[in-house]
Write a protein that binds this DNA or RNA. Sequence first.
DNA 1: GTCTATATAATGATAGAC
DNA 2: GTCTATCATTATATAGAC
Lengths: 192, 192
Amino acid sequence: MSAREKILDTALKLFNDKGTAAVSTNHIAEAAGISPGNLYYHFRNKEEIIRELFQRLNTTWETYQPLPQDRAPIINDLEAVIKSNYQIIWQYRFAYRELVALLRQDAELRANFLAVRQRGYEGFHQLLHTFSDAGAIRLPDDPQIANELQEICWLISEFWLTSLEVNGRKVNEAEMQRGVNLIRRVIQPYLA
Amino acid sequence: MSAREKILDTALKLFNDKGTAAVSTNHIAEAAGISPGNLYYHFRNKEEIIRELFQRLNTTWETYQPLPQDRAPIINDLEAVIKSNYQIIWQYRFAYRELVALLRQDAELRANFLAVRQRGYEGFHQLLHTFSDAGAIRLPDDPQIANELQEICWLISEFWLTSLEVNGRKVNEAEMQRGVNLIRRVIQPYLA
DNA sequence: GTCTATATAATGATAGAC
DNA sequence: GTCTATCATTATATAGAC
């Protein structure tokens, strides 16, 4: 593995473990088994490492094909999508825990992340309508209500894992399933 | 105002503006118009300042009387409660943005905060049943479902403002009302 | 209680040898 | 590309005068 990759992998692990503030470039270099000077050969500073990790995250979201293409989607597919979302968020949990701070201190990072996120939100909108067209759910006729339901589901997706952590709960398969259940509960009254 | 109060007020403002990581004890002292040495006379370190701010927040939650005592509650009272919650969270927004990190690095702070939060959650449970008894809402018979609904409402309460900030939206009365509407949307199918 | 001065350590970042 | 050595800057924390 290249030094650059080692730095990024190590930084992700440390950020997830201790938060970006508590991790210095020296810590990253030491944990990656390289010298501080070498780290600065590959990255200008910590901000650039964070930016690159966000870039990885963005790529993950962008290349992510949530639904099976060979058949009409059923309601269980929605659960699978949400679970995949949780997995990705957990992989980059430092980003979601510190989102407000990280986005504020770096305009470029904010622009890129929000653009990808916006596409994701639109994709989720499409997804719900795909399920609706396939007869798996019955979206309310009032688009305002449908939008509110989507917004609630999105918020749960994005913050459920953080909420678990605040509660001091282990994040595991079972707890992720509980997060899926909550979203199901929101749309339950609108199931076909 | 005493130096101690000045330090706490200034720290809260700076933490809310820039995040705890970007604010040093020197910054706080300078903005408060006192010397660094004086700050260390009143507080052992930044952690203790954060701890004291959390103590204030805890006191705010504990002394908080959400419902009018002189009459049976109506559904609009629930909206008022949620709005008050948003106001308090916004006042201490640094805490909610960085909750996972802050709770992890200070066991005493975590214990106190979680105890107060747990009582708040139980109070919210009570509240819903008060509304149910007063006929303002009709809670589902299945307690599991009722608990899930409560959990969803709680999550929206706690993370709606952060979600707004991630979206780059101004946090104002209208947006808080939207957050109230989302919670209303969750319980809408269970209204009397 | 409050200040100035200062010690100690950590962090971010660069220069130059290999 | 990678290292060692180094440095300027900042942050934390304390001592001692007033």
